[in-house]
């Protein structure tokens, strides 16, 4: 059973210039106890996807169709606001990108950590003990006294570890991490990633990990989902996707990864062009305008094609049958 199973998800934002199709036919699985990475350029819809899962889309956002099945039984798109609130922080937890702003500035860390245990049914001292235990787990020095301190008294890396401690405190089934290390420097990034992996094994949760840092994804994740302009263009195990990238976009992304540069170049290669306007999506492949392998077939609708078991791609250069369950 998958912890999270998304299929045919379409999300629109209403804007002054008409509807913006932010997520189109998004589908992938987060299997139990696995870490799934989502990678894509800025604006490709990663945060929108998370917000759709959490039921926290902006007021002008709307899930038009699709399913987000959690733990094999509940479709989150059909859950009431109250039902969603009951899952958040308890079964599904989130760590956000910005460690500086993620904690409330006027409440002490201890207060915030005990507040989120409001559904645990435990006494105050038990909640405090649990908070201290979690802070120790994420290696906050002097955990007992840290509870009385305020967020601005911690460094960025510590704040992010506190945020991770808070997210895992209730032992959720799914941890969503939206670029949790982007704001940290390289060494902190590595330790934070290792910590996350450690804790994930300890708690046995699944993780949906968002990053635009391919090295981090390769290091941490089991599976990877490559997104472009609100679509999943390629997905599979990290091994398959990184070793046999089948979508031209994935290949370009891997070529552009600074960590992969063997020669010292003055200018990092980037992919020329921009993400298409999501208010007027092309009928065919979304990447066609920037693709080096562009040909006539690209103007047609691109169904998801299977490369090998679990490795699927939306590109007609991959001459294979359609994956099952694809609603073309």
């Amino acid at each position: 059973m998958s912890t999270l199973s998304i299929s045919g998800l379409n999300v629109y934002f209403s804007t002054e210039d008409g509807p913006l199709h932010a997520l189109k036919d998004v589908g992938f699985d987060v299997p139990e106890r696995r870490i799934v990475g989502i990678v894509g350029e800025s604006g490709c819809g990663k945060s929108t996807l998370i917000n759709a899962i959490l039921g926290l889309l902006a007021d002008n956002g709307d899930i038009r169709s699709g399913e987000i099945v959690f733990e094999g039984m509940r479709d989150l798109t059909k859950l009431s606001a109250r039902g969603m609130q009951d899952l958040r922080g308890l079964r599904i937890s989130t760590v956000f990108q910005d460690p500086m702003g993620a904690l409330n500035p006027v409440l002490s860390v201890g207060r915030q950590m005990t507040n989120i245990q409001y559904r645990s049914g435990q006494s105050h001292s038990e909640k405090v003990a649990r908070a201290i235990e979690m802070l120790k787990l994420v290696r906050i020095p002097d955990a007992e006294n840290a509870l009385a301190r305020y967020p601005h008294q911690f460094s960025g890396g510590m704040k992010q570890r506190i945020a991770i401690a808070m997210a895992l405190m209730m032992e959720p089934a799914l941890l969503i991490a939206d670029e949790p290390t982007t704001a940290l420097d390289a060494t902190l990034e590595v330790t934070t990633i290792e910590l996350l992996k450690d804790l994930q094994e300890k708690i046995g949760c699944s993780v949906l990990f968002i990053s635009h840092h391919l090295g981090v994804i390769a290091e941490l994740c089991d599976d990877v989902v490559v997104m472009y302009a609100g679509e999943v263009v390629e997905r599979g195990t990290v091994r398959d996707v990184f070793q046999r990238p089948s979508h031209p976009y994935t290949r370009r992304l891997l070529e552009c990864d600074p960590a992969r540069q063997t020669q010292r170049t003055r200018v990092l290669p980037t992919i020329p062009g921009e993400i298409p306007d999501l208010r007027a999506r092309p009928a065919g492949c979304v990447f066609a305008a920037r693709c080096l392998d562009r040909h006539d077939g690209c103007d047609q609708h691109q169904p998801e094609r299977s490369v090998s078991g679990g490795h699927a791609v939306r590109c007609n250069l991959v001459g294979s049958r359609q994956t099952q369950g694809e609603q073309a």
Partner: peptide, 14 residues
């Protein structure tokens, strides 16, 4: 609008 309020929502606080 602040991100810590989004965090609080994501933790399911009432």
């Amino acid at each position: 609008e602040a991100s810590h309020i989004r965090t609080a929502r994501a933790f399911g606080l009432p």
